[in-house]
């Protein structure tokens, strides 16, 4: 049984239909990439998975439990945690307070130990723990958003465009970190436009276009696919 299973999911806003029957799975301990251009519906899929948007049809289940009609806090409670697009750290709160809030719903009992762990993972955050999160650089804010999510001891981490707006070197650091976390057992759904780098770390990938999965398979197969290479890599 996969950890995350999305079945024939349809969702949208008002008259606009964004997802039209999406199927996707993430297994325990897997890194899976969800690729696609702007407007393909990637963020909408994340919003449904996190309970911010009700689907019109189909369902999302997590660890065998149907979550697509649960409240966002119940989904976090179950261990599905999202790092949203644009990081969305709380700008007026300090770095430390942002991390504390990461364990608001889940991981409360081991909060001190997890704080140590996150600070060890991101020494930069430890240096700036008293600073307002809004004053951090984009890369540091991304670290903080990931650190905040880790405070909830996620079983599956969904990252929405973590590379957006970051310098290439920082993107590499973020992706390397994901590999490291994955080795420790964390399942990751990496939602990205950055095709090459995402495929480099993901075992499998899906390609979403106009609300439908148009290609899926092992990363190596997708990288070799002539049509995808032309569409996404300009090769």
């Amino acid at each position: 049984m996969p950890l995350l299973a999305v079945r024939e999911l349809a969702a949208g806003y008002g008259p606009v239909e964004v997802l039209r029957g999406v199927d996707l799975e993430v297994g325990e301990g897997e890194i899976v990439a969800l690729l696609g251009p702007n407007g393909a519906g990637k963020t909408t899929l994340n919003r449904v998975a996190s309970g911010l948007l009700r689907p019109r049809a189909g369902e999302v289940s997590f660890d065998g439990q149907r979550v697509s009609r649960l409240a966002p806090q119940a989904i976090v409670e179950a261990g599905l945690v999202q790092v949203p697009e644009g990081r969305r750290v709380f700008p007026d709160l300090s770095v430390h307070e942002n991390l504390l809030l990461g364990a608001y719903r889940r991981g409360r009992t081991r909060r001190p130990a997890n704080l140590e762990r996150v600070y060890a993972l991101f020494p930069r955050l430890a240096e700036r723990r008293r600073q307002a999160a809004g004053t951090l650089s984009g890369g540091e804010q991304q670290m903080l958003a990931i650190g905040r999510a880790l405070m909830a001891e996620p079983r599956l981490l969904i990252l929405d465009e973590p590379s957006l707006g970051l310098a290439p070197l920082v993107v590499e650091q973020v992706l390397a970190l994901l590999v490291e976390l994955n080795r420790a057992g964390l399942a990751v759904l990496l939602v990205e436009q950055n095709v090459v780098q995402s495929l480099a770390i993901a075992r499998r990938a899906y390609v979403l276009e106009q609300g439908r999965i148009v290609a899926a398979g092992p990363s190596a197969t997708l990288l070799a696919d002539e049509r995808l290479r032309r569409a996404y890599l300009g090769l």
Binding site: Q73, P84, F90, P91, L101, Y104, R105, R106, A152
Partner: peptide
């Protein structure tokens, strides 16, 4: 500050 981000941390 940010209701949606608050929901995403489980508030």
């Amino acid at each position: 500050k940010d209701r949606e981000a608050a929901r995403l941390v489980g508030i």
